[in-house]
Write a protein that binds this DNA or RNA. Sequence first.
DNA 1: ACCCAGGGTAACT
DNA 2: AGTTACCATGGG
Length: 267
Amino acid sequence: MDILIKNSNFNIKQTFMCGQCFRWTENADGRFEGIAHGRKISLSQCKDGVTLHNICEDDLPLWERYFDLSTDYGAMITQLSADDTLALACKGSGGIRILRQEPFETLISFIISQNNNIPRISGIIGRLCESFGEKIEGGYAFPTAEKLKGITPEDLAPLRAGFRARYICDAVCKVNSGEVDLDELDALPLEAAREKLKLIVGVGDKVADCVLLFAFAKHDAFPKDVWVKRLMARFYPQGLPECAKGIEGIAQQYLFDYVRNNGGLDD
DNA sequence: ACCCAGGGTAACT
DNA sequence: AGTTACCATGGG
């Protein structure tokens, strides 16, 4: 069945192309399709909102959670728009929704992302899914930690992940052993959750904050990549304004997307 | 032949 | 505590 989600703060192109996820692609007709939770769906945009195509009715709560539909983005945009620069970013990129992606997939994806570019990140993740993920209708699920148990860097050679291969193995090992329990992160405050994730070799502040923001929707997580460092130095040398307090991650993502698409860091 | 890419680690001051 | 080379791979 098709489900229309009426929402004025949900732009699928912005949401899938803003760098928070790596497994969604745009078709020639403007639809986006991708796989999450082992289910493949396609989405289309209309003026009232977004249509989820051919989903199983029982899966609706799952997608509502994935797209975080219970969160009021209009209120956050109003809050952030008290600042002039953020108001511009909201105007240009306010259709982004921060997804609640699967924690293990997000962890591995952002380990792969370090010192890397988006096309190659997607390529490595795609090969990981094809090599080790469960075959489903129309593609492959992201492999679970359990499925990757005991994997070695040599096993990952076909991915061509480079120096990140051993980081992936360490993450798999520590998730499976329970040393890093992804299920407990949601209940932990930001700093404690970040330190937990950093027990994994190859996970630093930035990767940890990406996981906490893009999988657990911890809106106070504030990943600082090279782009954000540049834009912070340019626009907010004293730090983000007061209106972003508690939702630094949302502000970060709007700003990140805005400066990447519209420049503004040239001079 | 360079340079960089949604960084992190180890080895230095 | 703050810098810096190096890490594989691929594209410009």
